[in-house]
Design a protein around this nucleic acid. Structure first.
Lengths: 220, 220
DNA sequence: CGCAAGATGTGCCGTTCGGCACTGGCGGCG
DNA sequence: CGCCGCCAGTGCCGAACGGCACATCTTGCG
């Protein structure tokens, strides 16, 4: 009663990650990796062409990121959606909501073991949704305790000064502006921002702004 | 670096189920079944006496059911809660909500394979929560239903293309990224962004991001 | 047909940002 | 006391951004 294996498309910009995932998945008798993509655009093209059963998509990719890939392949308006499992490295990502809203059939942290990876693929194949246990915890807090959520992910890691500067960055102020506002030198602003980048895993100030708005520190 | 194994207590009224779970869990190098209980009351007693790391509790049990066991061992008012993973055959919504409200660190369907069972135990040990993919699907429907629609200020002024680029900017993409995503030249991206700046009255791309997040076009 | 608007493209140039290395002051803590 | 985290500052340099002018091409509309 061995039916056809689950055909999986890997989308990640890091070659070693793709390789590791391929080894794990191909070791399973009921699934096979049919293609790999190093960019989001390539992933979408390959998915539309090959019609895999499941797409494993990293969030951080050059060009089209995993969330956009998900929306294009599994979004609400897509006629014949593909099952997409979103994979990411940092659980400080507030991307869970976006991923699920964009139609993702799973949300996995890369540090999750091989067992969860394969189970996530099987769940997606069945139309179910597996979410990493670490993520589920926070997701449930949003469910059971909607209003009070001051302990934002990673926000605790930021010092008061960094938080202050984060807000100013998110409002569109330049480093010079912030320096004037806080009566410090522009170079110091840069140093603080560098620290923020390290802690949040962001790459530029717009990333910081996106995190700030998404995490709620701008509206609360 | 092998730390102590995870000590598990099995609570199920069916002997063959307990036996199957014990075989699965004991086959794992990092966990061991320290006791079994056939009733809810026995489960609570054993748990309080043995202090296991994780309790696997079936819902359908004579006397105290698994949900009550969960509340007694992991409820909000319990001083030193035990991690409880609720296991059941029936994925009724009421079960899930009650279990999680009572402090469960996991919700598993018995039809889930051994991989999810062991992963659920490890997740519970870490303070995380694993939920069966079949259950998650319906849980998310309750979660993703209530997003309201805020007024989009001035968004009508932006063309479709500009709106598209605005979203990409707000996600932290560089002009080169956006160019790759949309298959256009970086210069064109700059032109579009210049148009957006004029229409929105913003001064830089972080301003655009702030507007995007504030106006609701990122979350709707 | 003629015109306007949108989308796409090129080139130039100054400003800003982001990464890196390094120094120093200040307050808490073992 | 010394160590460490936070805050502050300086310098350098390549990459990215922002503004400007200008040139197609398509589409829709009167």
């Amino acid at each position: 009663m061995t039916s056809d294996p689950i055909r999986v498309l890997l989308a990640d910009d890091q070659e070693n990650i793709r390789h590791a995932f391929r080894i794990i998945l191909d070791s399973q008798p009921d699934m096979t990796v049919v293609a790999e993509a190093a960019t989001g655009t390539a992933a979408v093209e390959q998915a539309r062409h090959l019609r895999p059963d499941v797409v494993l998509a990293d969030i951080r990719m050059p060009g089209l990121d995993g969330l956009e890939v998900t929306r294009l392949l599994a979004g609400p308006d897509v006629p014949d959606p593909v099952r997409v499992v979103v994979v990411t490295t940092f659980d400080l990502d507030e991307y869970v909501h976006t991923a699920l809203r964009n139609g993702a059939c799973g949300f996995l942290l890369k540090r999750s073991g091989p067992a969860l990876l394969t189970e996530a693929v099987r769940a997606a194949m069945s139309g179910d949704t597996l979410i990493s246990p670490q993520v589920t915890v926070r997701l449930l807090r949003h469910l059971t305790t909607p209003p009070p959520r001051p302990a934002r992910t990673g926000a605790a890691r930021l010092t008061d000064r960094e938080l202050q500067i984060t807000r100013l960055v998110a409002r569109g102020h330049t480093n010079a502006d912030i320096a004037t506002i806080l009566f410090i030198s522009p170079g110091t602003v840069k140093n603080h921002i560098a620290g923020i980048q390290n802690k949040l895993g962001t790459r530029n100030r717009v990333d910081i702004a996106a995190w700030a708005w998404e995490s709620g520190i701008m509206t609360s």
